[in-house]
Simulated scan of single mutants.
Amino acid sequence: MCDYSLEMYASRPAREEEKYVTTRFPSGSIGLASAGDCTTAVCVQYDTRLKLENISNDLQTRLGVKPEEEVIFARLEHGAYRDGIKFSNGKEVSLQLLGAGVGVALVAVHEAPVAARSEILEPIA
């Protein structure tokens, strides 16, 4: 969603075709925004899959992750800020720790194809 620390800003839901960047808003809080727009917070539903790009070298080392990672947007249980991300290795961090300048995109969720039925249906007489 959008952390309470961003409630003073205009907000809108994320869209699958757009790219975002972690942005430090004038209040000092970090949230998602379209590149160059620190006036509108972009809100993401919890449990949404995201692709991160340009993760800092420091965080890569500390968390054991790569510069690009697929993550889950998560609601953190502890700390002042509740919006965070969960890496596939189980590590969770708030957007505040992630820092500004990380690229973010929603991962498209495609429906699984319906399996073809193999049996032959007899017409009803």
Results as ranks from 00 to 15, higher is better:
residue 21 V to G: 03
residue 21 V to P: 04
residue 22 T to P: 00
residue 22 T to A: 00
residue 24 R to Q: 10
residue 25 F to P: 03
residue 25 F to H: 06
residue 25 F to A: 06
residue 25 F to G: 05
residue 26 P to Q: 02
residue 27 S to E: 05
residue 27 S to L: 07
residue 27 S to P: 03
residue 28 G to N: 01
residue 28 G to Y: 01
residue 28 G to C: 01
residue 29 S to H: 04
residue 29 S to N: 06
residue 30 I to L: 00
residue 30 I to R: 00
residue 31 G to E: 03
residue 31 G to P: 04
residue 32 L to N: 00
residue 33 A to E: 06
residue 33 A to V: 06
residue 34 S to M: 09
residue 35 A to M: 11
residue 35 A to L: 13
residue 36 G to K: 11
residue 36 G to D: 08
residue 36 G to Y: 07
residue 37 D to V: 07
residue 38 C to T: 08
residue 38 C to N: 15
residue 38 C to K: 13
residue 40 T to N: 03
residue 40 T to S: 03
residue 40 T to I: 12
residue 40 T to Q: 06
residue 42 V to A: 04
residue 44 V to T: 05
residue 44 V to F: 03
residue 45 Q to E: 15
residue 45 Q to L: 15
residue 46 Y to A: 13
residue 47 D to Q: 13
residue 47 D to M: 12
residue 47 D to H: 10
residue 48 T to Q: 12
residue 49 R to W: 09
residue 49 R to D: 09
residue 49 R to Q: 14
residue 49 R to G: 02
residue 49 R to T: 11
residue 51 K to A: 15
residue 52 L to V: 10
residue 52 L to W: 08
residue 55 I to Q: 07
residue 55 I to M: 08
residue 56 S to Q: 10
residue 56 S to G: 11
residue 56 S to K: 11
residue 57 N to F: 12
residue 57 N to T: 15
residue 57 N to S: 14
residue 57 N to P: 09
residue 58 D to C: 08
residue 60 Q to S: 08
residue 63 L to A: 09
residue 64 G to N: 10
residue 64 G to D: 09
residue 65 V to T: 11
residue 65 V to A: 04
residue 65 V to S: 07
residue 66 K to D: 15
residue 66 K to A: 15
residue 69 E to I: 07
residue 69 E to Q: 13
residue 70 E to S: 10
residue 70 E to Q: 15
residue 71 V to G: 07
residue 71 V to R: 06
residue 73 F to W: 09
residue 73 F to I: 04
residue 74 A to Y: 05
residue 74 A to K: 13
residue 74 A to F: 02
residue 75 R to S: 11
residue 75 R to P: 01
residue 75 R to H: 10
residue 76 L to I: 05
residue 77 E to L: 12
residue 77 E to S: 14
residue 77 E to Q: 13
residue 77 E to T: 12
residue 78 H to S: 14
residue 79 G to V: 05
residue 80 A to I: 11
residue 80 A to V: 12
residue 80 A to C: 06
residue 82 R to Q: 12
residue 83 D to G: 00
residue 83 D to H: 01
residue 83 D to Y: 01
residue 84 G to L: 06
residue 88 S to V: 09
residue 89 N to E: 01
residue 90 G to F: 05
residue 90 G to A: 05
residue 90 G to N: 09
residue 90 G to L: 05
residue 91 K to C: 02
residue 91 K to Q: 05
residue 91 K to M: 02
